[in-house]
Simulated assay, not measured.
Amino acid sequence: MMALSPLNQRRWRNFKANRRAFWSLWIFAILFGLSLMAELLANDRPLLVKHQGEYYTPFLNFYPSTAFGDDFRTEAEYHDPVLQCLIVTGRNELCFDAPEATKAEAEEAGTVDGQPIDRGWILWALVPYSFNTIVDKPGFAPGPPDAQNWLGTDDTSRDVLARVIYGFRISVVFALIVTACTSIIGIAAGAAQGYFGGLVDLIFQRILEIWSGVPTLYVIIIMAAIVPMNFWLLTGLMVLFGWTALVGVVRAEFLRARNFEYVRAAKALGVGDSKIMFRHVLPNAMVATLTMLPFMITGAIGTLAVLDFLGYGLPSSLPSLGELTQQAKQNLQAPWLAFTAFFTFAIMLSLLVFIFEGVRDAFDPRKTFR
């Protein structure tokens, strides 16, 4: 707090006084922080393996099966019971030749033919599946929740909880990148229009009228039919057509503030236009700007979900909450898919709206919380 200016200290106190926004920030930060560590929470490769006194990190590095005593040079299949036996015991004759009862007894006793075994071990993630892991279990897919899959499996037998963790991260990162880029472009364009006015404002308004009339969804669908869609291409298209959302709000604030006395005084003192715009006028326009941010973030998340639901969003190889919603629609006999998709979107969007409501009120000089 000592590094903050008195004005920012007051804003932080106002934000903390809004208990709903403050606790929403903590909850969302924890959830988003956990999703950033998705590889440590949900992974079909072990986090750490000890074998014959050496340590391996399979979730970071590639190890062939031969590293653990198997005969194949392909990547180790850590869910294979034989490979697990090799890692734990390090004895080929025990894992390939001995019957199951002998294996279990030897592993429990820690010896084979009277010789001690250098015991190894495997440290798995909390969810031992990645977002694209096919779960090998009896029965039909989608499977209901159980001790093995806490939120069940989808129609291709992939773990739903793992896909929610990875999908949550992609949705939030996508929304934050799109919102940040569109805000920078929109604020700069709106500030130039409102501050300079005249011919600059007239030309920009005509450009906005044309650009705002472009059907964004149709353009994305056409692009998806021409070139393979990926994360960065979809992000670029969203920024390309989404920056107009803030222009009108920022333009109106700058038109109102450019004739204030402190702006005229700054001009008379020879202060540059860019310094006046972004150091003196922009802070007064931040309240109206921050009012739009929660709608932009939730709109970006909703747009991504809709595109994934329609099949024109991210590639099918990536985890997607919209694709989970589509599966819930197609598999009405599996209500756990619908409940998972609904509560994930409801919690995520509600927390974001509450947080930005608190930020908006904290920047409003007319509001003071006790």
Rank of each mutant, 00 (worst) to 15 (best):
Q148K: 12
L240F: 14
G90R: 01
A141P: 08
M1W: 10
F62N: 12
L324N: 00
A328F: 04
R119Y: 13
H79R: 12
P58M: 04
A21Q: 02
R10N: 13
Y262H: 14
R163F: 07
E108R: 13
G358H: 02
L126Q: 10
M229V: 06
E323Q: 11
F204A: 15
V247Q: 06
W243A: 02
A147Y: 09
G299H: 02
G186L: 02
L290K: 01
F28D: 04
A338T: 11
A300R: 03
D364F: 04
D159S: 10
P6L: 13
T344D: 03
V112Y: 14
L246A: 12
R264N: 14
E39M: 08
A189S: 11
R11C: 10
W121G: 14
S320N: 03
V164K: 02
W150K: 04
R258L: 11
A257F: 11
R73K: 14
R256Y: 12
F15A: 05
E261K: 11
G143D: 13
M223V: 15
Y55C: 03
E107N: 06
G53P: 04
L321I: 15
L202A: 14
A104H: 08
G190W: 00
G311V: 06
T216S: 13
R10T: 13
I27F: 08
N331S: 09
D154G: 07
R360S: 12
I347A: 11
Y129D: 07
M223R: 00
Y218K: 04
A245P: 00
